[in-house]
């Protein structure tokens, strides 16, 4: 790519579906992979590969964005830790992007309420509701049955996207909701990059020291 271009690097390790993307306001280069629980070993190697594919160097980066959760605690720590190390070495801005907002981005034009969903581990789901042109509701955490009940309340205005079991997709469709097809349900790191890019253009970034993931409902008990 053009050596003079300045790219934003986005990292998403919120869930077991991981990804990294480069974005310059126009062009996208991205990698997605099923990370499982092996985020630390793979993430930087993938960033290195991504920069190689795009033909750019760390010095071509204008900012680093990280998906800020909700998500698995250790997954989020991997992304935030790596992002903070890159920021410490380069001094470029750091931008945190709500993971549910990234999951909903492909359906920004939906007329009703977009319901982005994340797999929160142990069979639980996290979701938000984003009425068209409005701010998302705070994330909620519940079982698939609780999500289904809420979507039935919203009715035909609902479009559900993100990570959830195939069986739930059938139930949601049977309840009258629109269900995003699998290829569009995949959360893309390019969405994280695009949302962060808008903030970067507005001169808005986070404090690299204090930025931390969205932690839902406290945390697991003392281990």
């Amino acid at each position: 790519m053009n050596g003079a271009a300045r790219f934003l690097l986005a990292l998403d390790t919120s869930t077991e579906q991981a990804g990294v993307a480069l974005f310059d306001g126009d062009r996208v280069v991205e990698l997605l992979w099923p990370a499982g629980r092996d985020q630390t070993r793979v993430l930087l190697a993938q960033v290195d590969r991504l920069l190689g594919l795009a033909g750019i160097a760390v010095s071509d980066l204008a900012a680093v964005a990280v998906a800020a959760g909700p998500g698995t605690y250790n997954g989020l720590r991997v992304g935030h830790g790596l992002a903070k190390g890159l920021i410490l070495a380069t001094g470029i801005p750091l931008i945190g992007v709500p993971t549910l907002a990234a999951a909903a981005l492909p359906h920004r034009a939906w007329h009703g309420v977009v319901v982005p969903v994340l797999a929160a581990g142990r069979g639980r789901l996290v979701w938000a509701e984003i009425p068209r042109g409005d701010d998302p509701t705070p994330p909620r955490n519940g079982t698939p049955v609780e999500l289904l009940a809420r979507v039935i309340e919203i009715g035909a205005a609902a479009l559900v996207t993100g990570e959830f079991p195939a069986a739930l997709a059938a139930d949601l469709a049977a309840a009258g909701a629109a269900v995003s097809p699998p290829a569009l349900r995949v959360r893309r790191p390019a969405s994280v990059a695009q949302l962060a890019w808008d903030r970067l253009l507005a001169g808005d970034a986070d404090d690299a020291a204090t930025l931390e993931p969205v932690y839902l409902h406290g945390a697991p008990a003392v281990g």
């Binding site: 630390t40 290195d48 720590r77 991997v78 830790g81 903070k84 410490l88």
Partner: peptide, 17 residues
């Protein structure tokens, strides 16, 4: 594990950059 992750990933990002 959760504590090690923070230092290891920050060190990786710093050294790589």
């Amino acid at each position: 594990a959760g504590s090690l992750l923070v230092g290891v990933n920050a060190a990786k990002g710093f050294a790589y950059a």
